[in-house]
Computed example of a mutant assay.
Amino acid sequence: MAGNRFLARMSLENEIGVALSDTRIRLLEEIGRKGSINQAAKAVPLSYKAAWDAIDTLNNLAPEPLVVRVIGGRQGGGTELTEYGRKMVAMYRALEIEYQAALDRLSERLDEAGGCDVGGFRQLMRRMSMKTSARNQFSGVITGLRDGGVDYEVRIRIDANTEIAAVITRTSAENLALAIGKDAFALVKSSSVMLSVDPGLRLTARNQLWGEVAAVHEGPVNNEVTLALPSGRSVTAVVTGDSCRALGIAPGVAACAFFKASSVILAAAD
């Protein structure tokens, strides 16, 4: 039986890829224990940037933040697992126990039937899994649909104060079976997001998300800039280092991330 045993490495997925995995859950657990994303990342292990990318994705996809930044205190601040985050971790671990028990029962039945090609099955599942390269992933509810003849304008509410607008073809809207009240995902590549620090600047871009610069990861030519939104979600842009310097982009600076409705890719559940 040991040779054919399936080991539980549970992943909870949505239509655009893995939302919760064992690695992300361990990261949340370590944040809960240590109150520091730097120490939590080392314990998993993950790079500091990969850890923050995972947290940003989880906070963007969840109904409410799982992790929040804490300012002040003797340690000068840190990160904290929210009550909602603790509940999600507990639920995942409970599901994992049941999942392993179910896999053990399956292994026993397969052994009784003469075994199976476990390796081949795993390879097939890996090939069938889907991931997305879009850096910004938001979940929400469709609040508006406007038929433009050739295309559709879709509005998705991602929190109490923020909507994202998307323009897609009529065919795409029909294939996704979009409807008011339906859950949907909005995907935006970081290269499609631009930044401004001028509140008086008039922009034609439909989507304008104001927040505070949380992190700037510098590269040889381009920088990756992450803005923390008031709701606890975040949005990431890739801009040139020269543009960052010209705008004075640095942690703590108020900025607007803006992108065209045509730059938004939608995904929806069946």
Rank of each mutant, 00 (worst) to 15 (best):
A40P: 14
A40Q: 04
A41S: 13
A41R: 07
K42N: 07
A43Y: 03
V44D: 01
P45M: 00
L46S: 02
L46C: 03
L46A: 00
L46D: 01
L46N: 00
L46K: 03
S47W: 05
S47D: 07
S47L: 08
Y48C: 04
Y48N: 06
K49R: 09
K49P: 03
K49D: 14
K49I: 10
K49Q: 10
A50H: 08
A50S: 15
W52T: 09
D53P: 03
A54P: 03
A54H: 01
A54D: 14
T57L: 15
L58V: 00
L58P: 04
N59V: 15
N59I: 13
N59Q: 13
N60Y: 07
L61G: 00
A62R: 05
A62E: 05
A62K: 00
A62M: 15
P63K: 02
E64C: 06
E64L: 08
P65Y: 00
P65R: 14
L66W: 08
V67P: 11
V68K: 15
V68G: 10
V68A: 11
V70K: 15
V70S: 09
G72I: 00
G72E: 03
G72Q: 05
G73K: 12
R74A: 15
Q75H: 02
Q75S: 14
G77F: 04
G77D: 03
G77H: 05
G78W: 05
G78K: 04
G78Q: 13
T79I: 03
